[in-house]
Design a protein around this nucleic acid. Sequence first.
DNA 1: CCCGCTCTTGACGTTAACGTCAACGTCAAC
DNA 2: GTTGACGTTGACGTTAACGTCAAGAGCGGG
Lengths: 132, 132
Amino acid sequence: MSAKADDVEPVFSITDLAQELDLTTRTIRFYEDRGLLRPARRGQQRVYSRADRTRLKLVLRGKRLGWPLDDIREMIELYDTPDGERKQLTVMLNKIAQSRATLLQQREDIELALSEFDDIEARCKAQLDSTH
Amino acid sequence: MSAKADDVEPVFSITDLAQELDLTTRTIRFYEDRGLLRPARRGQQRVYSRADRTRLKLVLRGKRLGWPLDDIREMIELYDTPDGERKQLTVMLNKIAQSRATLLQQREDIELALSEFDDIEARCKAQLDSTH
DNA sequence: CCCGCTCTTGACGTTAACGTCAACGTCAAC
DNA sequence: GTTGACGTTGACGTTAACGTCAAGAGCGGG
């Protein structure tokens, strides 16, 4: 009779996530310690929802971009602030602008590096050809 | 009579660069220690050429992208390997491919984050409007 | 000559982001 | 009941990327 008979939300253990995302459990607990995750508990064991898993993926993306954990936390918090905290909205818009500026700078850096690599590679290949 | 009477290459002191690029001299020396720079010496003092300055800027770009110093060094070395080290050329092409892959991943991460921020911001502004 | 300034090296401290290790809880299986 | 497998907390170790501090070299001015 349960209205949600079949669509039970999948849950993950800490080792599930560690294996899937190629992390150690120690690292995942550390992220929790730093406020990046707040999994539920069954007894004293951690239980991760699909949303928790998404958050963790966001953390990894932040890491790939070289962001410090504190910044990543701020960035992630943008995704799930309870709609309606009227006064917080402009604060949030500011943070978004901040993050966006950083991202734009990074993208610019990347574009530059990529085009430079194209040049270098071209010269490299020319050298290879010329020396036959 | 000097053929290069007027086009003397400008040189910089370590504090010049520190001020211009907003670093401490300690940091610049540290980068040298890690093999990222090799300035000339006048006596025992460091003298930076325009090329050294460019290298240092490349280091900063690497830092903005969150790369570790060792990776940055490898990346920079791509810019000034003595043309012709025949056997090294393919090694170099490999490293370029490596770096490029990382950059492309980072760019993808950035594009995703940016578009997500657009969404969040839109919802934010909608909220602001609705609450009048 | 001495002063003050800039620069140098070297030793040690610090912070972030984990890894490692020890000691213990829990629960299903035998 | 005990034996693993899995999970927990807490203490301590480690590495990268610097900062801080001490002691001294070199040099132009008065």
